[in-house]
């Protein structure tokens, strides 16, 4: 334990020393800018320039061919006065927060428990298996779970029957279906986020464990006091990414929704799609609603940053 603190203190002091040293080397900054050039050029040409164009489109009565009269904020006000937009917004928040919370904890638990395995081959195999669902498209995964959850013949209901529990109509009960969607989403992506944590665990200094063991720490202690705290930065990234992702939930809903559950599971992006891309030539309004989603994401991110105070992002 003592060692750990010492090490941490040493790193800290070095960081500040290094900082001082670098202050004098600001002239070297131009190499750093050079390193950023491809990224900046890319984002300017293929993201920000199109974004400006999109803002223009969102203020037009856009036609694919012919004139595109400027209509100001009419597209936006149309979207904002549509009840469906707001009900999908509510659904998005419910599903998004569910996925965010469960999806945040699950990969950490799994990564930690994987980390506790001593057999490398086992660790390797399990890690590989957990990643498999992420390789499949939502069409496959969604279809599969709909099958697994069907009444009578679906695997889940067969198991329930064996346990003497009555059949459950998962996909036709809107409130249950919401949870199905949350859990299937977490299930599919857990391996993906797990890899992020595992990769972070690689960079934990082995000396920390060594010294802890000398002090007689149990595996549980190690996990709680060394591994978990070292994952802080990764947790921040995963958290931030998930928050930015919740408003963009689409593929899964598109594949798994049906007539009965739609009012409870349709999300903002399916709204954009249904309004603008399922039918031809209503790009103006669709773009406006997509830009509103961007705006909401910005608010959400700013809000959480206020709340959580990511160190230095």
């Amino acid at each position: 334990m003592e060692n750990t603190q010492q090490l941490a203190a040493r790193t800290l002091s070095m960081k500040s020393k290094l900082k001082e040293q670098r202050k004098g080397k600001n002239k070297l900054a131009w190499t750093l800018y050079l390193m950023l050039v491809p990224t900046i050029v890319y984002f300017v040409i293929l993201t920000y320039f199109p974004l400006l164009h999109a803002i223009l489109i969102s203020m037009q009565n856009f036609h694919m061919i012919g004139d595109r009269p400027f209509v100001g904020l009419q597209n936006y006000s149309q979207v904002l006065s549509d009840q469906t937009f707001w009900s999908t917004f509510g659904n998005t928040l419910f599903l998004g927060i569910g996925i965010l919370l469960i999806g945040f904890v699950a990969p950490i638990v799994i990564a930690l428990s994987l980390n506790e395995l001593l057999q490398t081959w086992l660790k390797r195999t399990i890690q590989m298996i957990i990643y498999i669902p992420h390789l499949f498209s939502w069409v496959v995964v969604g279809g599969l779970w709909i099958y697994l959850l069907t009444p009578n013949t679906g695997l889940v209901n067969v198991v329930l029957k064996l346990l003497g529990i009555p059949q459950v109509q998962f996909m036709t009960d809107p409130n249950l279906a919401r949870w199905v969607i949350i859990l299937v989403s977490v299930w599919k992506d857990v391996g993906y986020n797990c890899i992020l944590y595992l990769a972070a665990m690689v960079s934990i200094n082995p000396a920390l464990y060594e010294s802890a063991r000398i002090d007689g720490a149990t595996r549980w202690n190690e996990m709680w006091h060394i591994t978990l705290p070292s994952l802080g930065r990764t947790m921040q990234v995963v958290g931030l990414l998930s928050i930015m992702g919740i408003l963009r939930l689409f593929d899964q809903i598109y594949v798994m929704r049906n007539a009965v559950i739609e009012p409870k599971v349709d999300v903002l992006m399916t709204y954009v799609f249904d309004q603008g891309f399922k039918q031809i030539d209503s790009i103006g309004q669709a773009t406006a609603s997509a830009l509103l989603i961007l705006l909401l994401s910005l608010f959400l991110t700013l809000f959480t940053r206020r709340l959580v105070r990511y160190d230095d992002m």
Binding site: T39, F43, T47, Y48, F49, P50, L51, H53, A54, I57, L241, M244, L247, R248, M269, V272, F273, G276, F277, I283, A286, T287, A290, L291, I293, L294, S297, L298, T301, M313
Partner: peptide, 15 residues
């Protein structure tokens, strides 16, 4: 760079 991650592709698809 963070903002680019929040832009829905549908918004800028045509541009």
């Amino acid at each position: 760079i963070l903002i680019t991650m929040m832009i829905p592709f549908q918004a800028i698809m045509v541009p």
